[in-house]
Amino acid sequence: MHRTIVDADKQKLNLNLRELFNYRDLFLILAYRDLKVRYAQTFLGFFWAFLQPAATLLIFTVVFGRAIQVDTDGVPYPLFAITGMTAWTYFAFVLNQSGNSVIGAQEMVKKIYFPRLVIPLSKAVVGFVDFAIAFLILGVMMLFYCFSPSGNILYLPLFILLTIISALAVGIWLSALTIRYRDFQHVVPFLVQFGLYATPTAYPAETIINSLPDWAVAIYYLNPMAGVVEGFRWSVLGGAPPSDFAYISFVLIGILFMSGLYYFRKVERVMADIV
């Protein structure tokens, strides 16, 4: 027998991940809805999903590859850039989408119960499509430059997972914060723009490590994606392994993720009242 007990005096902060799992149908269908709706009534349709990363890659190649001539340790620049972009694009997408996600779903939130975490989680699922497309472009580039990956590729799943977790960690934090303080609606676009420069997507991490004092580098690696993108690139393209600084990012991701889940749960309680 299914039993629900709610007691105002005995409220525990419980992640209740099993319940979340029971609602997997819901977040899959919400993700499906977002995907289906995303390119509805557009002329180019799904082609947009390719066009955006391709255009960014082109600009990166012209500016950083040709004009500034970033040192990529022998790797063709477009290949170098797309590797970083693959991880970063997913992260940026989830951030953009999840920040406003609960507010966007407020009609639902006010009318029906479900674990609210489903909302930002479904955004992370939607992002998989862009992630896959970026990987496709990456694959094509590798074929084009006849670049064969090193044995490090075995670590790729780990870094994919880290990308997803860090995107979720920040995404969950932002969606909960945005409900409480609408200020974060304005913070998110800024954060994404800022993050692109503060992440070694267009340039190698060594540039930062070699040119800044240690304390500044440590601050740089407080960006969770700094370490992830570095590791991601290392697992695909080989070269120097991630610096010790990268562990700052990795630890931070863990902390952000767990605290994000708890903070979200805390806000969840009053969500329908304040959204």
Binding site: T4, I5, V6, D7, Q11, V109, I112, V270, D273
Partner: peptide, 12 residues
């Protein structure tokens, strides 16, 4: 959808 401020309820 929202939590009570006081008291409890039980649904079977």
């Amino acid at each position: 959808i929202t939590e009570p401020t006081k008291g409890r309820f039980e649904i079977n």
